[in-house]
Nucleic acid binder design. Structure first.
Lengths: 335, 335
DNA sequence: TTGTAAGCGTTATCAT
DNA sequence: ATGATAACGCTTACAA
C-alpha cells in the first residue's frame, strides 16, 4: 500500500480510502491509484484490516464436510452471509478433527459469530463459547440452552410420518433409530406418536449411515412377521435398509413401507423416491444468518429459538399396509 | 496478552513464548501464565500473529461445496494439511460466487498456496495467480500449463471402460458427454478408444448431473436400436440415465450396460452398483499437499504434474452385450 | 530467565 | 481533497 502511495505520490490514507470506496478522494487520483495497484498486483491484506478495525465481518461455520446435508446448508449460508456483508469461514469436522478443534480454529480466526451445524457439544461448553462470540446451534434440540437455536421440529416431523403410515392402515410400525441428541429427539417423536395412536412403539437401534440401515435388515427379516412399515432416522439409513430389503426379495412398498428423514437429493432420485421429511435447509440457513445479524448488529442479547415446521414429502416407498397373508408368503418365497 | 502479562507481572514477550511452546520461560511462570490466560479466556489472535510473522501457514482450497467429489477431496486435504502443520481455508464456489471470487477471497486471507479443484479458469489467469501464490490445479487437464497439476488420466480411465465393454461383446457404445475441459478430456478418451477398436464413436451431449443423465434417455430410446452400452461422463449422469432407463422398462445390464465415472459413494450403494472408475481422492489430496509443500518449503520452482492411474470398479450395471433380437422385443414391450 | 522496542499492513483521528 | 500519526495484537532481535 505504501508502494502504491509512493508511486502515485500520495499517502497511504488516500489509497486505503479508495480501496474501501469511501467518498473523498477525487476521481483523478482514484484512477491513478487503481492503475498502479493493478500494475503492482496489489491485494488488500485482510488480516491487517482486521487488526485495525474492531470488526472482522467473519461468520464461522462448523460443519461435517462429508455430510451432504451440512454442505447444502453451508452453500446457503455462504450466500446469505455474503448478502449481509459477511464472509463465511468453514471449520470442518473430519475423522481426525473434533468439533472442539473446529470451534477453536474459528475462534482463532476471530469470527464474530459461530454457526454450529449439529453440535454434539454440551450446553455448558456452548455457553462458554457463546460468551466469546454469539453461537447459533442448527438442527439440534437444546433444552434450556442459552444460545440461539434454529431447528426443525423433528419430533413433529417423525410424528407426521407415523400419522401418514397409520392413515395407510399400518399398525406394526418399527423405528430404526440413531444415537445422540438428534437420534433421541426423533425416537421420542416416534414414541409419542405411536402411543397417541394406541400402538406399540418398537425401536431398533440403527444409525445415520447406509451401512447402519442395511445391517438393520437381518433383524427385521428374522421376525415371524415382517413389520409393515419402518420409520428410519434419516434418508441414508432408509436407503441402506431399502437396498437390503429389495435384495432379500421384499417389495417396497407392497410388502413393507419405508420412510426417511431429511429429504436429501438422494431421496428425490426417482428410482429411490423415498418418502421423507424436508428440513428446508434454505430456510434454516436464512434464519441462522438472521439470528447472527440480530445479535451482532441488532442489539439482541437474549437467546432466541426458531423452530421450523417440517414438511412431508410423499413418494413411492410408502403405500397401503400389506395383507398379513401376502407378506408372509413373500417372505417364505424369498428364503 | 498485555492483560495476562500485567496480571502475572511479566512481559508480553514471555507470554507469547509460552503460548508458542518455545524453550526459555521457566516452568513456574509457564504455569502462572496459563492459569491467568484460562481465567481471562484468552485466545491468540491469528491475524495479529500472521501480520508479524512472514508466514500464515494457510492453504487455500477452492471447491464446489455441493459437489460431493470435491467435499471428499477437501476432507482429505484438511487432514493432510494439518499433518504438515498447515490450516485449510475453504473458498466455496456456489451459484452466486464465481471461481474468481473464491480465489480472490483466498488471496485476501493471505493463503500461502492455492489448491484449485476443477478450475475452469484459463491458463493465463492461473499463471497470474501462481505468481502471487503457488497454484495446484486438481482434476483437470491443463496442456502446457505453468502451474502444478494433480489429476487422473481421465482419457485413459474412459478408455478402460470402453475396453471393458468391448470385452463383453459390445460394439454399439454411446458416450453421454459433459462440457468444459473435463468433459472434453473424457470425450476424447472415448473417441480414441473406440477408433482403436475399429468402432464408430457416437457422442451425445449430456452433462454432470442426474437431470442431464435422465434427459438423455428419450433420445436414446427413440433410436431404432437401443445402444448396447452407454459410457456416461460421471456417476451422477449415469445414475440419472439408469433411473430413466429402468423407468422405461429397460433392464440394466441385460438390455443395456451403463458406466459412470468417479466411483462416488453413490455408485457404491449396492442397489445402484454402478460400474465406474475411481479417481482416488485420498491419493490426489496427498499429492496436492505434497506439491504445495515442495514449492513452499522444498524450494521447487518449476511446475510439476502428477498424473494418477485410474482404477476400474466393476459392478452390476455392465454385462455381456445383449442379443439384438431380445433388446428389440423388450423395447416393443415397454412401449 | 526475562524485558524492551521495533515492526507487520491496515484503518481512524485529526490536521492541513 | 489530502497527509501525518497513532493504534490494532502479535513476534522477534537484542539487551539485561
Amino acid at each position: 500500500m505504501q508502494d502504491i502511495a509512493d508511486r502515485v505520490g500520495v499517502s497511504k490514507a488516500l489509497v486505503s480510502m479508495i480501496f474501501r470506496d469511501i467518498a473523498g478522494p477525487s476521481a483523478a487520483t482514484r484512477e491513478k491509484v487503481m492503475e498502479v495497484a493493478d500494475e503492482l498486483g496489489y491485494r488488500p491484506n485482510r488480516a491487517a484490516a482486521l487488526l485495525s478495525l474492531r470488526r472482522t465481518k467473519l461468520i464461522g461455520v462448523m460443519a461435517e464436510i462429508r455430510n451432504s446435508f451440512h454442505t447444502e446448508l453451508v452453500d446457503f449460508l455462504v450466500d446469505d452471509a455474503e448478502r449481509a456483508g459477511y464472509e463465511v469461514v468453514l471449520g470442518p469436522v473430519t475423522a481426525t478433527r473434533t468439533q472442539a478443534q473446529a470451534v477453536d480454529m474459528l475462534l482463532e480466526f476471530q469470527c464474530e459469530a459461530l454457526v454450529l451445524l449439529g453440535p454434539q457439544l454440551d450446553s455448558a461448553t456452548l455457553h462458554t463459547i457463546d460468551e466469546r462470540a454469539p453461537v447459533v446451534s442448527v438442527g439440534r434440540r437444546l433444552p434450556g440452552s442459552t444460545v440461539d437455536v434454529v431447528r426443525t421440529a423433528d419430533g413433529r416431523g417423525v410424528a407426521m410420518l407415523v400419522n401418514h403410515l397409520v392413515t395407510l392402515g399400518h399398525t406394526d410400525i418399527v423405528h430404526a433409530s440413531g444415537t445422540g441428541a438428534i437420534g433421541a429427539d426423533r425416537a421420542s417423536g416416534y414414541r409419542r406418536a405411536m402411543i397417541r395412536h394406541g400402538l406399540d412403539p418398537q425401536v431398533v437401534v440403527s444409525g445415520f449411515t447406509e451401512m447402519a440401515g442395511s445391517s438393520t435388515a437381518p433383524g427385521l427379516l428374522e421376525r415371524d412377521d415382517l413389520p409393515s412399515a419402518v420409520v428410519c432416522v434419516n434418508d441414508r439409513c432408509a436407503i441402506g435398509l431399502l437396498d437390503a430389503m429389495q435384495k432379500a426379495g421384499i417389495d417396497v412398498p407392497a410388502d413393507m413401507s419405508i420412510t426417511g428423514y431429511d429429504n436429501s437429493p438422494l431421496a428425490q432420485l426417482t428410482h429411490i423416491a423415498l418418502t421423507s421429511v424436508s428440513q428446508d435447509p434454505r430456510e434454516q440457513a436464512r434464519r441462522a444468518v438472521s439470528s447472527v445479524l440480530e445479535r451482532l448488529d441488532g442489539g439482541r442479547t437474549r437467546p432466541a429459538s426458531v423452530i421450523l415446521r417440517p414438511r412431508l414429502s410423499l413418494r413411492s416407498t410408502t403405500g397401503p399396509a400389506a395383507q398379513r397373508e401376502k407378506t408372509r408368503r413373500r417372505i417364505e418365497r424369498s428364503r
